[in-house]
Design a protein around this nucleic acid. Structure first.
Lengths: 223, 223
DNA sequence: TTCCAACATTTGTGATCACATTCTAGTGGT
DNA sequence: ACCACTAGAATGTGATCACAAATGTTGGAA
């Protein structure tokens, strides 16, 4: 059986092995290479990533601390399974934090940034038409985070990243089953609201984008 | 020099040493036993806590992942120093998340819970009068978290806990210098709003409680 | 066939060791 | 007296080992 999670080779150079392992596993989770409920072993990862168990232990500890992975009652590390309650919570937290991040970013949106956001949105819609899920996920992620980063947040951004990390495997699975054609595109509303500088409309667009995207799958993920 | 951070003995029994160390260090941070900027060494902690460096490594990794500690550019673990920017962000994030948590808890507030909250608020105000900082901090923490826990949140609650952990050492220092007599008490407004079941007033009270509490110290913590 | 006990394997945790990097004194020169 | 430089100590990181708990497998008995 081929359980190899297809780790990407390390893109950039990292200071420590633990950091390299952390980002490789993190990336694998984001790309949905781990199935929910799938157990992860320290020695197995160490063998696949060509290092000793030590850096893997710390990387996994870090990821479980971010809720990207989960500790079972027997101290085994697994990919978290999603429940409707957790999804609703993540949804609510994302609305609360991303609305705040967007509002905080709003004064910093110049014409260059707006143009960049439009181009990223174009990538998103084109990926939607081509049903290229991989591209859609990454472009959508880039679109949101380039906006949020304009306000130069640190703490809030890392909280949002943690929440995205938790829904990442789910997105992948659900999009595989349903396709992506029927998702409403709230990015247009968002871009218009940003251009107008309307805080209320920005918050509304983000809330709808999140709730329609994540809410639409809330009934289907009982695996 | 007596740098011993006065670790509390482990209150309950923990499954692993790493977990014990994690909570002991976490508790020490919450009680302000570590000074901001103070470097923390793995071997030093290991010696103080009677274990090998290994569990300390994982506990510190976990705490830095929660931003309760910080990694310097030379991979040294230090207690984070607060900056006005970080404080403003934490403040904004707390408003966003705690308003959400309170709104989520509102339907679950029964008469028993309301009475419990009133008693906790009484503890807070009495601690304020007696200028008992330790008691104030814990009672205030209990007040907020018993409210939030009513909505049975998991993810949001852990996010909020992480944010409180980041401001804990600051509270301690600032309250030592200024005393606590002039802090406005928004808990009364909050309790009234809860009794009325008014979401808008609950959110307003929490926003004011956070912003007046943390905002009042934003200009004074340049250490 | 089904169930359960006993064994072997795997796994997580903690300790110890080795090494490269960083911090800290102590030294020597100006 | 002051500063740059070097040697020693201390620290973080990674690897390996030991051990107990958990998991998986095998074997026999009902």
């Amino acid at each position: 059986m081929n359980m190899a999670p297809e780790f990407s080779p390390p893109q950039e150079e990292f200071r420590t092995t633990q950091e390299r392992v952390y980002f490789q596993v993190r990336d694998a989770i984001l790309r949905g290479k781990f199935l929910p409920g799938h157990p992860i072993t320290i020695r197995g990862l160490a063998a696949e990533l060509n290092c000793s168990p030590m850096p893997v232990r710390e990387a996994l500890r870090r990821l479980t601390s971010e809720r990207a992975l989960e500790l079972s009652d027997t101290r085994r590390v697994t990919v978290p399974t999603m429940t409707p309650e957790k999804l609703a919570e993540i949804c609510a937290a994302r609305v609360a934090l991303e609305c705040q991040a967007a509002e905080q970013a709003l004064p910093f949106v110049g014409l260059g940034a707006l143009e960049q956001l439009r181009q990223l949105d174009a990538r998103v819609t084109s990926a939607l038409k081509e049903k290229n899920i991989e591209e859609y996920v990454t472009a959508n992620l880039d679109f949101h985070f380039t906006l949020y980063r304009l306000g130069h947040p640190h703490i809030i951004l890392s909280l949002i990243e943690s929440l995205w990390l938790q829904t990442a495997p789910l997105q992948h699975l659900v999009f595989q089953r349903f396709g992506v054609q029927e998702l409403p595109d709230r990015h247009e509303d968002l871009l218009d609201a940003i251009a107008d500088g309307s805080v209320a409309r920005v918050r509304l667009a983000i809330r709808q984008d999140i709730e329609e995207g994540l809410g639409s799958i809330s009934a289907e993920e009982l695996l």
